[in-house]
Design a binder for these strands. Structure first.
Lengths: 138, 138
DNA sequence: GTTGTTGCAAAGAATTTGCAACATA
DNA sequence: TATGTTGCAAATTCTTTGCAACAAC
């Protein structure tokens, strides 16, 4: 179900709306967990989608670069996940890799207090919580 | 200046106090920035220390596993840094890779509030701030 | 038509493993 | 001495690049 809005969003980011990019975005849309390029490529191929591994790597990098995806590190591998527009943090289930987005004014405030107290100019920050989700605990 | 305390700490963690491990710990002790296995190996070799790359990898992994080191991701590469005992967060200079440790009761509190509100059991959390330190801004 | 994109094959880089020699406890 | 550790070389794995065919605008 590729929406027209998706194509617009891609163009806005200076990316052509190719079949492969729409495929990747569609695949990402359904899921709340993180995926690596390798994972996603295999899934898409198994689902019959013709797409190259190189393209999956490049697409995920481009989408992350354009702010469509959040990035995570799964021990050496880079994993990605579709994200909302606003800045947020993450509640990550270490068992199923599902990610819930959380906002936190408390953290934002803390970030600027700490940084300015030490004379740092802030370029970014990240606050993630790791745990096991209710579903995985059974 | 390999202290006896260092050797004890290693044994406590179930690791033998080998020359290589003490060398790595010594090298790490002096610095406030993060290093990768490749970096550290090269530095040690250049300093005349005989140590294998494999060993540096294994040593850093073991030390991190034992809680001696904090780990960071420098785009694909894993970087390490000696850390204090207590739980803390990081103020990272993206220019020189120096890390200042920061404590944050506010964040701890926030972590448990958010997690329990969603039924997650917490296994860990991490709050890092990225920026440019006063020295690098000149 | 132009220019960005794709995908294969090959290259590159980081990291891990097999295994015999070796050092620590 | 028994067992954990080392380090080389080789193998793995993740990721990137060259380049010609191709698709989007």
């Amino acid at each position: 179900m590729t929406t027209y809005a998706t194509e617009l969003a891609l163009r806005e980011a200076g990316l052509r709306a190719t079949r492969q990019r729409l495929t990747v975005l569609d695949a990402l849309r359904g899921r709340g967990d993180t995926v690596t390029a390798q994972d996603l490529h295999m899934e898409l191929r198994q689902a019959g989608e013709p797409i190259g591994l190189t393209t999956v790597y490049r697409t995920l990098a481009a989408l992350a670069d354009a702010g469509f995806l959040d990035t995570f590190d799964r021990e050496g591998e880079q994993a990605f996940r579709l994200c909302g527009d606003a800045h947020h943090h993450h509640l990550v289930c270490e068992t199923c890799n599902t990610v819930e987005e959380i906002t936190a004014e408390e953290v934002e405030r803390w970030v600027h207090e700490v940084a300015s107290a030490r004379g740092f100019s802030v370029t970014g920050h990240r606050a993630d919580i790791f745990g096991v989700c209710p579903a995985c605990r059974g």
